[in-house]
Design a protein around this nucleic acid. Structure first.
Lengths: 246, 246
DNA sequence: GCAAAAGTGTTACAGATACACCCATGT
DNA sequence: ACATGGGTGTATCTGTAACACTTTTGC
């Protein structure tokens, strides 16, 4: 702690930065864009051609514009720089502000988690590539740590929200959906139980259609969709829930 | 979306802000400091004497110093300005960056959630006051919304982590603890079940001591403590948990 | 008919709430 | 003795995993 004068009674907050240097700093926004590709949870990364961190991989993003909000900025940057426009979900992850996190000087970074459904293949520039989230290449700055935050967040939210809608195509069979969950969670998910869990919670519903069975036979699969394609908490308070008052 | 040129293949991220104005902005850190006081979840607020938002209540905090990290900054400001040094828990909540959130010009704010145990009474300046979190006064900026984020975060984490340690004193009886939980959660928590839940999860343990019964008699209460006084997830994956592989 | 994939029924179990009952103390 | 608050035992409920079994298709 700094050995600074007494308590700042009545000070306005404009007076706080006097002794710790200017409060002006660059601010960037970054995105961990995740998609299930070939049954693996994958991140969109970008290879840096110039220093700092030349040759290493980095998260897409860039400087915050002077007149834009944070959400707005990351959406703009993803659309401009990696041509990603089809995010089904976007949420703020965390902000990192260690003074030495960027070799070029003080730069704060606000990171986002973005999700893309498995059925589309956005056209991305040559210097970007999808990497398995469980097997990251050498990354610059603190970006690898941010990717891990994003994975943890996604795993947790698959358990108590309906985020699944953001990973799956608009319509899907239960065995497809269970593959998406398996890829994102990193462990087996039985299609039969997943179906019941998500039905009970009202997350998914049958479309009435079904998909003809493949060349090897088998019963045709029913087609499902998520009822709501916007994040909702479907399983709040697994424990310490309020009394039933019945 | 902006009708901006093609995809930024190979652009370094220094080139992104060209058309959206300078990326320089003020950054402040704010804290929602919560404590259970008189059986109510309370927030420490500060009354603004000067414009903007003169006379309204605001969260403690201030400008980020030029050489400090975000966590470091909020700790410093709480110590200096409201003399709060005994935080048992501090975590980042969210960063707000709407261009118009501050009338004095572009200011980003990173908000923290800070907790103080119920047994201490930090000496705070005259212009600060504790307010019940469920009955906030008129607040400036977007601070009321931030307080609500903090309450939601705390409620959720009481359910699947051991954050209780940060609200309770080092030692406590189960009926005291259940009052803290009731205040934070906003609903009744039966001491008898809370005890079993927290014991099963290994969050708390008996000290062996007991507290003499009060003037009205009654069996003396056993004294407990949290085994770990650092946040841990104790109930991960209430659902969609990995196969038991037994 | 047989293999394959999807879907159903059922059981088992974990973890929580609700509640009746027992225990230890002060007056 | 009895009132008071703490602690234990137990029934019940909810939601999920596990798994055997049935259904529907292709070959």
């Amino acid at each position: 702690m700094m050995p600074m004068g007494g308590i700042g009674v009545g000070l306005d907050d404009d007076s706080a930065a006097l002794d710790t240097g200017a409060a002006v700093s660059a601010h960037e926004v970054l995105a961990v864009v995740l998609q299930i590709r070939h049954d693996r949870l994958s991140v969109l990364l970008w290879r840096r051609a110039l220093p700092p961190c030349e040759g290493l991989w980095a998260l897409p993003g860039g400087r915050l514009g002077g007149t834009e909000g944070l959400d707005e900025s990351i959406r703009r940057q993803l659309a401009q720089k990696v041509d990603v426009r089809d995010l089904t979900h976007l949420e703020q992850l965390e902000t990192r502000g260690e003074p030495d996190r960027h070799p070029r000087g003080r730069t704060l970074a606000t990171a986002y988690l973005g999700l893309i459904p498995a059925d589309i293949d956005p056209a991305t520039p040559d210097d970007t590539e999808w990497h398995p989230a469980s097997d990251l290449p050498a990354m610059g700055f603190d970006h690898a740590a941010i990717v891990h935050s994003a994975r943890r967040r996604l795993r947790a939210k698959l358990s108590y929200t309906n985020v699944g809608f953001a990973l799956a195509p608009p319509e899907f069979t239960m065995s497809e959906l269970s593959r998406y969950y398996r890829a994102a969670l990193g462990h087996d998910v039985a299609a039969t139980n997943l179906r019941r869990v998500l039905l009970r919670r009202g997350q998914i519903e049958e479309t009435g259609e079904s998909v003809p069975s493949g060349r090897s036979g088998g019963r045709p699969a029913a087609v499902f969709r998520f009822r709501v394609r916007r994040m909702e908490i479907t399983d709040a308070f697994a424990v310490l829930r309020p009394p039933s008052d019945t």
